[in-house]
Write a protein that binds this DNA or RNA. Structure first.
Length: 474
DNA sequence: ATGTTC
């Protein structure tokens, strides 16, 4: 497909609808970020998504968009459930409910300084990470797993891994209600039993950060953020369990495309109507895997609390937990009518504005926190949802890759990167030199530019900038 | 992302 972009504003570009697209594409970016988005066929994927049955309004790309499996990462697309709308596992991604949790410690940067090394040593020794390698909480078997898949972060809290108030500051209060553990296969359960409370690898990390700058004092204060405060950002997902759920259901849907008369420009877009046995089965399994991801981040939170208590004698509060790989059934106004939509956000977060009725009262006035992890050498951001977001209240989820992992390995050595970061005062606890090198800050877009474009496009508003102090790398 | 190629 030949992709041509039309500038609608300095922050918004349109891909004109042409057969077989059912809706246009919309790319949120700046002229500087656009060439990055256009690389690796990500924009062709935006156009491909616009062909899905039941898709409404537009196929969207966030400023951090890059190439992914079927759908681009940084892509958002909604389908009309009552109009044959489909759900596609590729629109969620292999790491179901991959997401970010931000914690805030009762200590500032200066106060932590003399204890930072000890803190990092404890975190480095106690946070399970890397491929395989076990987790903090070993489940006894399928029966216990099913309870976790239904209860999510709440199940972890019930078992002493956290406090009930944590759940207030989790999206969906830590669990999606429509989880169906019976749709999670034996292999997925087997892979997940040993991995609850583990970081994983790739771009997953746990960072000790300091609030570097506040843009909106009132909202930052509502989130518990003030200049100099020490925070912890946890980025991880649903490990082997989510991966296996995606694999299993993609296979099923790939085989049922003909039965539903669905033709696709790319088989990786495999999908089924939301209101079909295959669609419902996937959504039930996806929600269960999402709840696993939330429980996983809850367990890691407790390990962080233990580390801060031992190293610095201080407590740690939960600021918020968001998933950025999800499909959710939501109601939105489309062409003047309220419609039930299946909103796919793959590498994109929900970003509800102040006053949205689905926010808990503690966040109603401020709006929903948007957590944007950057890179271990630059910065991360907290934004907040705002009114007028026509991308179904969605925002970016990170900096977005520009180098392949292969290219990063050609350019950078892990040991040299560690020395570079340490010389900047960033303590590093890698799990492998190769994994560290693959995640070199140069492999990513400029997160300041991505966050700025997200605000410029009216998707969310800047609240605070966080800089890394210590990195525990998956 | 991923028992890094069922």
């Amino acid at each position: 497909m030949d992709i041509s972009l039309v500038a609608e504003s300095p922050f918004r570009f349109r891909i004109e609808r042409r057969a077989p697209m059912r809706v246009p594409g919309v790319v949120f970016a700046t002229a500087d970020l656009l060439p990055r988005a256009a690389s690796g066929e990500a924009l062709e994927q935006v156009a491909n998504v616009a062909t899905l049955p039941g898709v409404v309004r537009a196929s969207y790309a966030m400023p951090d968009v890059h190439w992914g499996y079927g759908f681009p990462i940084g892509g958002v697309a909604a389908t009309d459930v009552e109009d044959g709308g489909v759900v596609s596992p590729g629109g969620v991604g292999f790491d179901i409910s991959c997401g970010v949790r931000l914690l805030a410690a009762d200590i500032d940067r200066a106060g932590l300084e003399p204890r930072l090394r000890k803190l990092m040593d404890i975190l480095g020794d106690t946070i399970p990470r890397g491929m395989g390698r076990g987790g903090l909480w070993k489940l006894s078997g399928r029966a216990e797993m099913e309870k976790l898949l239904v209860g999510g972060a709440g199940y972890a809290v019930e078992h002493g891994h956290g406090v009930p108030s944590d759940l207030t500051f989790c999206e969906d209060e830590g669990a999606l209600e429509d989880a169906d553990p019976s749709q999670v296969g034996a292999r997925a359960v087997e892979r997940g039993l040993q991995q609850v409370g583990s970081l994983g690898s790739g771009n997953h990390f746990l960072e000790v950060q300091a609030v570097d700058r506040v843009y909106d004092e009132r909202t930052a204060s509502a989130f518990g953020l003030r200049p100099g405060r020490i925070c912890v950002m946890i980025h991880c997902g649903s490990r082997g369990l989510g991966h296996q759920v995606c694999t299993d259901h993609v296979r099923v849907m790939d085989r049922t495309l003909d039965r539903y008369g669905i033709s696709l420009p790319d088989r990786q877009l495999a999908c089924a109507p939301v209101e079909s046995p295959e669609g419902r089965a996937y959504l039930g399994a996806m929600s269960a895997a999402a709840n696993y991801g939330r429980a996983n981040r809850q367990l890691l939170t407790q390990a962080v609390r233990r580390a801060f208590a031992t190293a610095a004698g201080v407590g740690v509060d939960l600021v918020y937990d968001v998933s950025h790989n999800m499909a959710k059934i939501e109601t939105h106004r489309v062409d003047g009518a309220r419609r039930r939509l299946c909103v796919h956000r793959k590498g994109a977060t929900l970003a509800l504005p102040p006053g949205d009725p689905s926010l808990p009262e503690e966040l109603a006035e401020a709006g929903q926190p948007v957590l944007v992890p950057g890179t271990m050498g630059t910065a991360s951001y907290v934004l907040v949802g705002e009114k007028g977001n026509d991308a179904f209240h969605s925002a970016c989820h990170g900096a977005g890759r520009v180098w392949s992992r292969h290219q990063a390995l050609r350019e950078v050595r892990g040991e040299a990167l560690r020395d570079d970061l340490e010389s900047k005062g960033i303590a590093v606890r890698p799990s492998s030199w190769r994994g560290l090198a693959e995640e070199t800050p140069e492999a990513y877009k400029d997160v300041d530019a991505v966050a700025g474009a997200t605000e410029g496009a009216g998707l969310a508003r800047l609240v605070a900038r966080l800089v890394p102090v210590g990195v525990v790398k998956g």
